[in-house]
Amino acid sequence: MTPVERLSGIVVWVLAIATVVFLLTPLAVTVAVSFGSSAVFTLPAPSWSLRWYEALGRSRELWGVVATSVQLAALSTVLGLGLGTAAAIGLLNGRFPGRDAIVTFLVSPLMLPGLVVGIAMLEAYRAAGLRSVWVSLILAHVVITLPYVVRTVYAALSLFDFTLIDAARTLGLSYPRAIVQVLVPALAPAFVTSGMFAFLASMDNYPISIFFTDAWTRTLPIQMLQFVEESPDPTIAAISTLLILLAVVVLVVGDRMVGLRRMADL
C-alpha cells in the first residue's frame, strides 16, 4: 500500500464514522429528550424522568389519533399486500408486452413528490363527489403501500423457480394448493419485510395524508406536526421514541427474516 492509499483509506473511514454519528444523531437526541426532566429540551438533561411518558399515557386525544393511524396502516398494508402480490405473480408468469412499463407504473408513487400526488388525489376525489375522510384516506394509503409490496415481492419472485409449482402439480397437488404449499413459504420473507416497510410508510406519511384529514379524523404525523408547531413539549419526544422502538422491532425482525444486507437493496 502506498502512503496515498493509506491516507485515503483513513479519510474514508473517518467520514464514514462521522456519517454514522450524523445519521443516528436525531434518533439519539429524541430518546435523550424523552427521558429528560426539562420541558425546554435542555441537553444534557438536568435529571432523568418518565414524566413525558406519563403525560403521554394520560393524553386521550393522542391515543385516538394513534388508533386511527394504526388501523389505517394495517388495512392499507393488507390491501397493498393482496393487490401487489397478485400483480407480481401475474407480471412474472403472464406473457404480455410492456411488462417493464407496468412495473415502473406500479412503483412510480415512490418516486413522485408526495405533495403533488396528494393534491391530484384531493382534486379528483372531490370532483368525483367522494366525501368520506376514511374512504379517501384508505384509497390514498393503498397507493403508498402497494409500491413497496410490488418492488420487494417482484424482486423475490424473479428469483423463484416456477417449475417447482409444475413439479408440485405433477405430484398431484391442485394449482391453489401448490401455490399455498410451495410458493407462499418461499415468499414469506419478502411478504413480511415489504409489509412492515409498507406499514411504516403509511404510519409516517405526511404529505399525502394532510389533504384528507379533517378536525375529527387525523393521522399521527399530522397531529405530531401540529403539536410541534403549536405547543412543543417532550411528550412529542416520548411518542417519537415509541415510533423509533417500532422501527427497531422492524429492523430486528427484518434481519432475522432476510438479513440486513438484503434489506439494504433499494
Partner: peptide, 16 residues
C-alpha cells in the same frame, strides 16, 4: 445507521 433512520418518520427527525 442507514436502515433505522429510514424506518423513522420525517416528522420525528425534523423535530429532533
Amino acid at each position: 445507521a442507514i436502515i433505522l433512520p429510514l424506518s423513522v418518520g420525517v416528522v420525528v427527525k425534523a423535530f429532533a
